[in-house]
Design a protein around this nucleic acid. Structure first.
Lengths: 155, 155
DNA sequence: ACCCTAATCTTGAGCCATTCAAGATTAGGG
DNA sequence: CCCTAATCTTGAATGGCTCAAGATTAGGGT
């Protein structure tokens, strides 16, 4: 069920005009297989393939890949930055207030900025980011069936 | 031009069922006169009235006032949390990518959640936060008239 | 295939925003 | 005016991220 990249990470990195390093390939692979991963989660994944990667290398790779447009960086409230490979479709996110689950939502309009504010105060707007907050199916079910509990219920 | 509170901070705090302390009044006053202030900015403002406030007191006050619904906490990208007194009108924000200026935008719809995602993945959504990103009038003008410059131009 | 050099990575320190913990102060009901 | 829990002060600690210096390495040139 994990996404099988249409184009291998190495090709994407090379196509972006960047040097192809094991660290970059591993970082891009990690985000591809696990979207919405934090830098710490990426470090954990990458360490499986490259036991000696430094966290700094992970931050550098994430930064460079983001600038190159191969990754998109999003932050939910004050939490750590999350990374994903869907970069140019202007999609939005659903975030569970309870468990932190992040799910993509396609943008109904499509191209950015998909919304226009009621008044722009002179701003030249290029993007409208939307974050839907609430409870995911599991947390909502758990909350209604067992009011005071931390159980997660069945999958 | 600074907002003159309709109801003094002290009354609001008391009405919320909280103890009225100098620190809380000063913190609420600070956010009222300077919306979108960070904890550090609030500490700076509060220090003018209470030279010996601790930063911890500021964090405590901001936290309690937020839980009580007297303040709303928003975070722009990875920056420090910003606080504002408009709490229940579901308004949104314009953020300048260049200078960080944050401006309120009324929500065209009104009540939260003002938007519905194209598919909710089972989520029970209670809020849709919108962040419009771009350049403020000043930065946009500076960018188009003097391509490589940091000047701010006239007000 | 081998150099060479800038780009990248490793190591390790440092910074900022925020939180934790323990003891002193204080608001406000009785 | 007391009393006690809520709040504040002080000081240390954490997490996420960035800075800096030196070692390694990708990949164009020969």
């Amino acid at each position: 069920m994990l996404p099988t990249p249409e184009v291998p990470s190495e090709s994407l990195i090379r196509a972006a005009g960047m040097r192809v390093t094991r660290q970059r390939v591993a970082v891009l692979d990690a985000v591809t297989t696990r979207p919405h991963a934090s830098a710490a989660a990426v470090l954990e994944s990458v360490t499986l393939a490259l036991p000696d990667v430094s966290h700094q290398a992970v931050y550098d790779c994430l930064g460079h890949l983001t600038v190159a447009g191969l990754l998109r960086r999003v932050t939910m409230d004050g939490g750590p930055a999350l990374y994903e490979t869907r970069t140019r479709d202007n999609h939005h996110h659903l975030v569970c207030r309870n468990c932190g689950l992040v799910v993509d939502v396609d943008c109904a309009i499509g191209a950015a900025p998909c919304l226009q504010p009621s008044h722009s105060a002179g701003f030249v707007i290029d993007e409208a980011e939307v974050i839907y907050r609430g409870q995911c199916a599991q947390c909502a079910a758990a909350a209604s069936s067992t009011p005071v509990s931390d159980e997660v219920g069945e999958a």
